[in-house]
Design a protein around this nucleic acid. Sequence first.
DNA 1: TCACGGTTCTGTGTATACACTGAGGCCAGT
DNA 2: ACTGGCCTCAGTGTATACACAGAACCGTGA
Lengths: 215, 215
Amino acid sequence: MRASDRAYAMLREDIVEWRLPPGTVLGEVEQAKRLGVSRTPLREALARLTADGLAAQHTGRGVVVTPISPETVEALFELRQALECQAAALAAVRGRAETFRALRADFEAAAARLDADPGEDPARRGYYTLVARLDAGIDEAAANPYLAQALVNVRLHLARVRRLAKDNPARLRETAAEHATIAAAIAAGDPALAAAATKVHLHKSLEHFNTINHP
Amino acid sequence: MRASDRAYAMLREDIVEWRLPPGTVLGEVEQAKRLGVSRTPLREALARLTADGLAAQHTGRGVVVTPISPETVEALFELRQALECQAAALAAVRGRAETFRALRADFEAAAARLDADPGEDPARRGYYTLVARLDAGIDEAAANPYLAQALVNVRLHLARVRRLAKDNPARLRETAAEHATIAAAIAAGDPALAAAATKVHLHKSLEHFNTINHP
DNA sequence: TCACGGTTCTGTGTATACACTGAGGCCAGT
DNA sequence: ACTGGCCTCAGTGTATACACAGAACCGTGA
């Protein structure tokens, strides 16, 4: 693996995990020393982070980690809605029904498990991997590399803001039902319904986020 | 201006204008010599192009200009639809009605001009700048940097594809009416109508493209 | 004491040198 | 003649050296 790839992966993770909080200045020599690479591959990594929107050029003063605000989250969700609704609709048309019937069943099982034992940690971890499976399934079924790339990017930003939204068991239980609905709509081959279910899910997620962060 | 910025701008334009057609291998030393910069800033430019999706890493063999196919155009329009419909809807809610009333009038005037003198070159050039004004107006009214960034990127790819679609006067006349409808819907503050008008416009544009390229 | 100018220093931008990997061609053996 | 292995070389990946620009700090003069 190339040094620039390693530097990029490390910096990206550090930013997403808030070890490098918003506003941090990323000095080239400093980060190069910290990550054990030379300045050249580190600069490449910083360029990629800038392209991703996780960092920005602060004229003359190097690059800084992009700040985050409530408006940022709203904007991010508006973009996310556009992308995920389109992806769900396309998946409904092109996806294999079996795949999403299975996912629906998995989500309903997960919901039952979360009902039985709310707050249990392995169940939560398993749930997150299940969500990732649904996302991956939709991406693949949508069969659109441009859309997929845009979704990867928006999910990257969402992963960072997720650190602000400590999800409670009750909300987790709700999302399981919403995800099951989305999977069912795709399995049924109904693009409008799939998009609507996705829109509802995202609306509720944002609402939940706001009730927590704006008291 | 930095050497890496110049190299990026030059390469991007060369790719969009098909002076570097799809499949071209971009050797570092070769391009560095051609553009009169060193390899270091050129590598940065290539990294940005790769992030944009205009070039891709061909393992070990340097980067190559991304290929284009009919499926590519379909996929691009699916992403474009998601983004532009969302942007139009947001603009309808947040934009100033005056701005878009003026744009609507301009489009109707342009339509009349195109009717009177079809194929006239200055009218066409003026029309393209008018379209750019509408795009910019929607972007600004939507007030969403993430969405705007995604739109910039998709328009970059569209600019490259546009070289395949030689637009005829009749189609240009139609788009003027469609654009006027979009502007009117935004001015009226109707997000659903704005999104629908945008969807119709893009559907017809793609249809036109297909009738030309798939005989 | 405050303001202005100069100097220094840190840090980025660029160029170049060196190492390594991957591919292609050539030679030898079967 | 064909195939497999080795050698060579082109080209990328990385490191480092050098130049330049911006900022901060200190000194001096009013």
